[in-house]
Design a protein around this nucleic acid. Structure first.
Lengths: 363, 363
DNA sequence: GCACAAGATGTTGGCGATATCATGATCATG
DNA sequence: CATGATCATGATATCGCCAACATCTTGTGC
């Protein structure tokens, strides 16, 4: 068995070593280290002294094996470069670390049931105590339901399952903020470049946009759809720029908004003079777009922290009532939107026809 | 002891259960699952059948405790939103996962010795078998050296320590590609916005830039310095735009380049007509900058994979010779650079004198 | 002053897997 | 056909810690 053969190195100290130095039993050491209340101050001090004299650290594997808990939580995330995803994860990590939990993330490259299931199994293998699901659950499978039943799970993108608790950003509100902002600037209606349907966030934004227009008695233009990438924004921008009616666009992500704006530039439509654009996410570069992008900031880190809080509460007390929670986004106004009245007649060179259809076709 | 009390749920099957079903000993199950060669095909099949009949999965904690190895590697990373960092991590994760290793990341918010040391400790607590250090090691402390001596470590940002192996992108080459590209376009010399000195990547780029200029017999302008953020690029752009001599700038990151370009726009200096800009990283949005950004793409994922390969090789065979490895970046030419000759006389508002001395002093 | 509660610490027995050694079977060789 | 080598498998002893129970101390009420 584990014989740190060769190496000549001495193995790291164990609880027994600490116990010997502190002249107490190993169990007492354990109690001190776990913050158990029934230990005399005097004893505690002796133990702590021994601990850092020896540079002792508890062995995670042994703890886990013995107690059946890992003090680790898992996160399922989609593998992307989008900073919004990273921001969520980092919020989760900070909160978890503060609570003494480790985080292990499993990334998936697709949203299909199999891929998500396999990410969950990887986490299960790691022995996580709970999971935060940061991807949309389009079709939940029996295996997934079974997992969420046996392992406390929080979803943070709006997915509902039988047995998982939900923490999310109010996406309908995000859409309403953006849309009302544009209407308030004097636009007759607002067009929309949505995210992929598979993403619940995306559909919530789309519905929020639609509802806002309807509530205001405006016509609802047909929504376009992208895949969150700047390239897909660009393709949609090439379309929007050719529709004379379009004066305001609500784009479901900043990355896509960059693409839309680039396309509009190329078509000679000025932003914000001819067309106003609002994004979502408030990525770092939003302010450095030209023009600086008006967008809806999402409290990613806060949501991550909240998800962790809920999960840990659930882990400590499995009977706690699951309460869905939403956090609110905030509109950040920059220069990609401006009052419509002030800049009505725009003689800028309108759409040129040309090889502008170069956009590669993809679903 | 671990008594899954209450819950009424039956505990997951153990190796003994599998052994019983397959009518072999637990040890044989272990052999089969570890791919040990000395097992008859017949037996192996029986065991496998039992395994997936029961849905058995080995308990990681027990394995770890018993074998002393965790089959997990750790990554130390800086907490940022920059996609380049995420790309490296994701390259690492993929490669590790493919090899059956888990990855746990520890993020640090600062580069000081204490913060890095504490990130390493967190990883040590997790019991990782090896570590990939993705942040620069400015001052290595005794504790850090001790860690790298006892745990196989790879650095991927150029840090050298006594006992860690190095995998890195050739940053001097990145700088040379950018600088030579600009010189090749007819510029007399090239200015530089560097990253923070603490980052070895940044200093390598700066030295590569300097060396290239010197080799070409050009004058070397004083380098400016940012902190990788778009905001710092913007600040430096406001300075550069006021210096009439400046016609070409090599910016040490795309994010900063966005800021530089925004500043130049605001000062009325056209890109690329008046000033050419080259970035580094080739982030997703680089193509959607206006103008689309010429940049040096770095093979982040490849480097991550390579680092994992080296680390695992080292783990399997501790005596393998440590061989430093570099991977090469690639220049991506877009519209933020153009031949100088073609656009010589640029009557754009030249430098105004003012508070342009804001440049922080640096060595 | 006694019985009993509550607090402080020690003792024992695994958690689930793997390493090591032991054993029985098969096989080549002289 | 005996002898040792090689292969396939089993038995046993932990790995380092924590849970449950046992024990010993101290304090408290009547």
């Amino acid at each position: 068995m584990a014989k740190r053969s060769a190496d000549g190195g001495e193995r790291p100290p164990g609880m027994a070593d600490v116990a010997r130095v502190a002249e107490v039993s190993a169990q007492t050491v354990s109690r001190v280290l776990s913050g158990h209340p029934n230990v005399q101050e005097h004893t505690r001090a002796k133990v702590m002294a021994a601990v850092d004299q020896l540079g002792y650290r508890r062995n995670r594997a042994a703890r886990m094996l013995s107690s059946g808990r890992s003090r680790a939580i898992g996160v399922v995330n989609l593998q992307t470069n989008f900073s919004s995803r990273a921001a969520v994860t980092s919020g989760i990590k900070d909160a978890a670390q503060a609570a003494g939990y480790a985080v292990s993330t499993a990334t998936t490259t697709s949203l299909d049931t199999f891929a998500i299931d396999s990410a969950l199994s990887r986490l299960a293998d790691q022995g996580v105590d709970g999971v935060i699901l940061a991807v949309p659950l389009i079709h939940s499978s029996e295996r997934i339901e079974q997992f969420t039943r046996s392992t406390p799970t929080i979803t943070i993108d709006g997915s509902r399952t039988e047995s998982a608790e939900v923490v999310a950003i109010d996406q309908a509100l995000a859409a309403r903020l953006a849309t009302e902002h544009l209407l308030g600037l004097g636009h007759d209606t607002v067009w929309h470049v949505a995210g992929p349907e598979a993403w619940l966030d995306a559909t919530s934004r789309r519905e929020g946009w639609r509802a806002t227009l309807e509530a205001a008695g405006r016509s609802v233009p047909p929504p376009l759809e992208g895949d969150w990438s700047p390239a897909s924004g660009y393709r949609n921008g090439l379309i929007l720029g050719r529709i004379p009616d379009v004066t305001a666009v609500f784009v479901a992500s900043d990355e896509m908004a960059f693409g839309v704006i680039k396309a509009l530039h190329e078509l000679g439509r000025r932003v914000p003079d001819d067309i106003c654009v609002v994004g979502v996410d408030n990525i770092d570069l939003a302010e450095y777009c030209s023009p600086p992008l008006t967008t809806v900031a999402q409290p990613f880190a806060q949501m991550g922290a909240l998800a962790v809080a809920h999960l840990l509460r659930h882990l400590e007390d499995p009977d706690a009532a699951p309460e869905p929670t939403v956090v609110e986004p905030e509109l950040i106004v920059r220069a990609s939107t401006a009052p419509r009245a002030a800049t009505e007649p725009a003689p800028a060179s309108p759409a040129r026809r040309s090889n502008a259809m170069a956009a590669p076709s993809q679903e």
